[in-house]
Amino acid sequence: MRLLLLEDDPTLGEGLRDFLRSDGHLVDWCTTLAQARMHVSEPFDVWLLDWNLPDGSGVDWLRSLRAKGLTVPAIVLTARDLLSERIQGLDSGADDFLVKPFAPEELSARLRVMARRLAGSAQRKSIGPVEVDLNTKAVWLDGQRVELTAREWAILEALVLRAGRIVSVSDLEALVCGFDSELASNSLQVHVFKLRHKLGKRLIETVRGMGYRVPLH
């Protein structure tokens, strides 16, 4: 999943970024609200927001985003633990609330819950002869395990989480690259080609002039 991590503490931010990356997520880390505002329109799967930031409140910002109609799932990471504050955080539009200090493994587990919700509750998705396990990041074709590279998995996961919907090329590039790196020209098409080669031509449909889609089955 592509995650927007908004955390001003360098030790925690870096630790979470690296931990979640090692878990297979694409993490874009911002340390200020100003940075986050610049990127919020990009396609993220989950926002991870700190409450207290040097230039404002992450929760207030989330409330304003919800008011604008943005529905990306959000987890608030905060040092505030009073019941009233938890309620305030959830009422501002957060989908989950994690009180510091927390184990990154717990955050990772909560992200898997988010992924299941995005994918429609099932942990394993069957798309024709292809079976995808979002938890273990494993893929099978006709019951045979297929090995994917990290980039190929990122593309497949982004499409499976949005099964039935068209994902534009630019959004897909953003979902699998983040704003730290860029895909080389035609690189996305190459990865899609490789995925089709490994998992069958019918898994990923091309919608001309619009993007790609994994059909709903």
Binding site: T11, E14, G15, L77, R80, K100
Partner: peptide
């Protein structure tokens, strides 16, 4: 105090987990 203590502790744990 909570913010000053909790965040570094969470950071330490995250770094150690990595």
């Amino acid at each position: 105090a909570a913010h000053a203590l909790r965040t570094p502790l969470a950071g330490i744990d995250a770094q150690l987990a990595v």
